[in-house]
């Protein structure tokens, strides 16, 4: 077993364990901290995939922005949910069944695919140039439409979030 494989197993064990704790933990704040750990683990997986840019962006966006926002919301709504009771719906066995079925189905379908076990090609010297990636994102021959669509989406989300969360003065 190579070093990369051992690292992958460790990281993925962290990710999966943390994700399970996110879903099962009774105290919502604990769940949020487990989520942070899971997101870190995913960042490490990205680093193993030679995408170090996305590993860093993952920490910045998910831990810095999204997890912080979630924790802020948890603090704002603290004390409304009773931590001592079960945090799962009555119908959770069905949900579990659905998820296990989905996982089994996915793995089965993927294992039929002939490239399922393909190995990674060697990384070319110039495969990973941030400047080229930036140019590709903003050039009309590249991915300008996708990039602009993402910007418009973010703008719409910002306006929507401000409108929804605004306190109505006077009532």
């Amino acid at each position: 077993m190579s070093t990369a494989q051992i690292l992958f197993l460790i990281f993925s064990a962290v990710v999966v364990a943390a994700a399970v704790m996110v879903v099962l933990s009774r105290r919502i704040m604990r769940a949020a901290l487990w989520l942070v750990l899971a997101l870190f683990g995913v960042a490490l997986i990205f680093a193993l995939l030679d995408a170090s840019f996305f590993a860093v962006v993952q920490v910045l966006v998910y831990v810095g922005a999204i997890a912080t926002l979630l924790i802020f919301a948890i603090m704002l709504t603290r004390g409304v949910m009773d931590d001592s009771k079960a945090q799962l719906n009555r119908g959770w066995p069905f949900a579990l069944l659905v998820c296990l079925g989905l996982f089994g189905g996915l793995v089965y379908i993927l294992s039929q695919w002939n490239r399922f076990n393909s190995a990674a090609p060697a990384l070319p010297q110039d495969a990973y140039d941030l400047t080229l990636f930036g140019l590709a994102l903003t050039s009309p021959d590249g991915y300008l439409v996708a990039f602009e669509a993402a910007s418009v989406l973010l703008l719409a989300a910002m306006v929507g979030a401000i409108y929804l969360a605004l306190e109505k003065r006077g009532n």
């Binding site: 704040m29 910045l60 924790i71």
Partner: peptide, 25 residues
């Protein structure tokens, strides 16, 4: 000399933020 040095600095700052949140909570 990371090629994503600036983003790294900001990301690390986010970790410090998380420390304060954990202390407060």
């Amino acid at each position: 000399d990371l090629s994503v040095g600036l983003i790294y600095v900001m990301a690390v700052g986010a970790i410090g933020e998380m420390g304060i949140v954990m202390a407060g909570w």
